[in-house]
Design a protein around this nucleic acid. Structure first.
Length: 273
DNA sequence: AACAAGACCTGCATGC
DNA sequence: TGCATGCAGGTCTTGT
């Protein structure tokens, strides 16, 4: 489900509820999500005060007073909901934390591709799920030059390369399609052929699309909602994602849908080269 | 080494 | 209505 803008939106919603607040109790209904959960997770969280939230790619980090940090990944179908009192729990509410304020934070994930883990604060880069993540697209380190360097020699399609979290961290299927449309680059183009002008446009589009999506609270497709129950409005700004057969916003020719590395790609074969 | 396909899991829409 | 099929915002693991 969530890509960088949705994860950032979730983080922003969580901040006022958990930063500087103590966890009173933890409710856990299973011992595994994508993988086995850490031993004694409840005890290691209960009584801890949460610090300033962080995000790396599509991961949220919650530093704790114990010196550990809670790592949260929402996978494909994960979501976090906030309540001001104990809610009625649903079938897929696998994890919940009650704050001393009385607020509840509930992690729900029907498909269980998401995960929770603990790591030593300060040793984030040692964690196997974070160690190989590429550059943060909204950081100063991200540039057209870096994009070119990373794509150098790659024969795979640029669409597929942009989904590789080891190159750039945080892009997913929606925003890759949107950034490629915005920069007028075909998703089928070999990554290694993206040079100068195209690289510059692509880098600019990636940043622009992500920032615009964050400003709209992300994209709500199907049942995805923000922690407070709001939906993300970027869905109304999508130019190509999920719009096969509909007119291209630039030239009005029908949007095409193709399959690349097992995932849908949407693009305008006339505007995007 | 690079890349594609398979795997993991549930829910929902579609078509017969 | 019931059942089979395919698809979904991710990404690790396996196979070529």
């Amino acid at each position: 489900m969530p890509e960088l803008p949705e994860v950032e939106t979730v983080k922003t919603a969580l901040m006022p509820v958990i930063e500087g607040r103590r966890i009173r109790s933890v409710r856990l209904t299973r011992t595994d999500l994508r993988w086995k959960l850490p031993d004694r997770l409840e005890e290691r969280l209960t009584g801890q005060t949460c610090g300033v939230l962080g995000r790396r790619g599509k991961y949220i980090l919650v530093p704790l007073s114990s010196g550990e940090s809670l790592l949260i990944h929402l996978g494909m179908s994960g979501s976090i909901r906030l309540y001001d009192s104990q809610p009625q729990f649903g079938k897929h509410d696998h994890f919940a934390a009650e704050m001393e304020s009385g607020d509840w934070f509930v992690f729900s994930d029907p498909r269980r591709f998401g995960h929770l883990d603990l790591l030593v604060t300060g040793e984030e880069e040692k964690h196997p799920l974070l160690a190989n993540l590429g550059v943060e697209p909204l950081s100063n380190a991200f540039s057209a030059q870096l994009l070119m360097d990373r794509f150098q020699g790659r024969k795979q399609a640029v669409k597929t390369a942009l989904l590789d979290q080891r190159l750039i961290a945080g892009l997913g299927n929606i925003y890759v399609s949107e950034a490629l449309f915005d920069s007028a680059i075909s998703p089928r183009r070999q990554a290694g052929t993206i040079k100068s002008a195209r690289a510059q446009r692509l880098a600019t589009s990636i940043v622009g699309v992500l920032r615009a999506a964050i400003a709209q609270g992300g994209t709500s497709l199907r049942d995805h909602i923000q922690p407070g129950g709001e939906i993300g409005y970027f869905v109304q700004k999508l130019a190509v994602y999920g719009r096969s057969g509909m007119p291209c916003p630039r030239c009005a020719r029908p949007i095409k849908e193709i399959r690349q590395a097992g995932r849908s790609s949407f693009y305008c074969s006339s505007c995007q080269r």
